[in-house]
Design a protein around this nucleic acid. Structure first.
Length: 255
DNA sequence: ATGGCCAATTTTATTGGA
């Protein structure tokens, strides 16, 4: 089972690229973030023709998440309620062949002293509460743009980013709580040396300079993580015409 | 080559992203 996560930064603008990308990897499950589409406009038909069932939770202009799956999606849940009554569409979960798949778009947080950062912290606490309703002994995968670079190994220019909301101590602690609950960072497991990034700013030639951060993640409970045979970032998708500012992250499981 | 923001909406500016 191959599982991917990709912040597409508008499903409308990225649909052509997404449809071209799917056959390259033939992922079984794809978690998408920042679809920026109301549900009526979600390209369900085009994705069905590409061979995917879809579960989506969108809103106007901002946010929006979706799960694509070759196999049917069961028990679809939209949002983090009752842990959080969130007016923003940032979370969708579903079962795929006995695996609970969680797709999250964690708030960015803007600046450390902003209300948005308080919301990010609150949101991450609600994610903890959601996980408490699940078991780390069952196959579960948390995918998404977590807007956290968990370690300096995940930041190309550490000094330039040390005060950002992506690297802040509280955000990194929230990531550690996910690991403490029972999740494994499978990309870290296969690349302990670091230096893999999943996001590069559109501005200031960040990608050619490789001024990147790893903020998109695939975290799996041990029953699933133990079966992981590889995990990587598909950097090629940041190249070329009209890329998202995020590249897809992919993990393969022998099940 | 991987190239100097991008996408949606409020649309000829503004807002949010990270």
């Amino acid at each position: 089972m191959k599982i991917a996560t990709w912040n597409v930064n508008s499903i409308k603008i990225r649909l052509e690229r997404l449809l071209a990308w799917l056959p390259i990897h033939s992922p079984d499950v794809v978690c998408l973030q920042e679809t920026k589409s109301i549900d009526e406009n979600f390209p369900e038909d085009a994705l069905r023709e590409a061979g995917y069932h879809t579960a989506y939770f969108g809103q106007k202009t901002y946010n929006g998440v979706a799960i694509l799956s070759r196999k049917p999606l069961c028990d679809v849940q939209l949002g983090l309620a009752p842990a959080l009554e969130d007016p923003q569409a940032r979370f969708v979960s579903a079962d795929v062949e006995g695996v609970r798949v969680l797709c999250a778009y964690v708030p960015n947080g803007s600046t450390v002293d902003s209300d948005k950062y308080a919301y990010k912290q609150r949101w991450l606490r609600a994610l903890d509460a959601y996980l408490e309703s699940q078991s780390p002994d069952q196959p579960l995968v948390l995918c998404g743009d977590l807007n956290i670079a968990p370690d300096d190994l995940d930041v190309a220019k550490v000094e330039a980013w040390k005060d950002s909301v992506l690297c802040h101590h509280d955000a990194r602690q929230a990531f550690e709580r996910l690991l403490a609950w029972g999740l494994t960072d499978v990309v870290r497991r296969f690349h302990p040396e670091g230096g893999l990034y999943s996001w590069w700013d559109y501005r200031q030639l960040a990608f050619p300079k490789n001024d990147g951060l790893r903020i998109d993640h695939i975290l799996a409970t041990e029953p699933l993580a133990a079966l992981c045979t590889g995990a990587y970032v598909d950097r090629d998708q940041r190249k070329g015409k009209q890329p998202s500012d995020h590249a897809p992250v992919v993990a393969e499981f022998n099940r």
